[in-house]
Design a binder for these strands. Structure first.
Ligand SMILES: [Mn+2]
Ligand SMILES: [Mn+2]
Ligand SMILES: [Zn+2]
Ligand SMILES: [Zn+2]
Lengths: 143, 143
DNA sequence: CTAAAAATGAAAATGAGTATCAAAAGCAGG
DNA sequence: CCTGCTTTTGATACTCATTTTCATTTTTAG
């Protein structure tokens, strides 16, 4: 699966005429080895630990490339930091976000997705993307 | 209804031991007279037009009080500016956001809300709030 | 009225993200 | 492998919304 994603990125890079660099390889390796919902800063620190000499700017730039290539998704929660998560082709999910311990539970609900389509249709609206975030306390954080 | 909201804020202020100031009164008046989804900067400019000598910091601080008091809701779209909208007691709605013209269509869907409750229950999660934003193009912006 | 506490606002600080640009690295053709 | 051209990088400067600071003003209880 990791190989699969690397191939996806290489195909994307080739189609865009992007050059192959040590930095992008490093960042992709670290990203693929990382758990979901990483902030740019977190990823930057991990990359730096693995290989000296990768700048923050490059991490920012490269994550945007991953999004363009379709292997990452940008997530904006309420903590002022952009996070990135893995995306499997065609997969989609939404989030339960615990404000107590910052943990995230993922879920999928086909009915909600369908209802969104209906709502959009009713308003002549063409959906490009959506986000559904439910904030509250996870079972461990409830008193 | 405006009186109702002012009363709500006064009750809140009293319960919190907040002092009554000209600035907060001004900001509340302007906010209540304003259309939905105002950015802080927009509100600040309107307030300044009405009464000299209200600082930005106070507008920022006061809007947070309105949220605490339950008469405003914070909205974070993807334009880097925090916006505030009116909240009627017990009312809730979500948003279709046009990325073409930045217009916002509001909608309510009871079934989606119920499904969220079910999902949360299934995970032992206690919902405090949620946001559902659908991004795309409104009927006028579709080509 | 008066003293203590809260509120204000100008200005400085913060912090995530972006732009700049000189230097380094990748690449295609010879 | 050179060579020359283009892309990429990264240190640094910058942007811009929001927050903090703190001296001064305002509110309020007594
Ligand atoms: Mn996720
Ligand atoms: Mn709204
Ligand atoms: Zn939790
Ligand atoms: Zn539009």
């Amino acid at each position: 699966m990791i190989q699969e994603k690397k191939r996806t990125f290489n195909v994307f890079a080739a189609s865009k005429g992007l050059r192959s660099t040590r930095q992008r390889d490093n960042i992709l390796d670290v990203f693929l080895a990382t758990h979901q919902h990483v902030s740019v800063e977190e990823l930057y620190l991990k990359v730096k630990a693995v290989s000296q000499g990768v700048g923050q700017a490059t991490v920012y730039r490269t994550l945007k490339l991953f999004v363009e290539a379709g292997l990452a998704r940008e997530i904006l929660l309420h903590d002022g930091q952009t996070r990135y998560e893995h995306v499997l082709a065609g997969e989609h999910h939404d989030h339960l976000v615990c404000t107590g311990c910052n943990s995230i539970i993922e879920f999928e609900n086909e009915t909600i997705e369908q209802l969104q389509d209906e709502i959009a249709a009713r308003h002549g609206f063409m959906i490009r993307s959506h986000k559904l975030e439910i904030y509250g306390l996870c079972s461990r954080c409830r008193t």
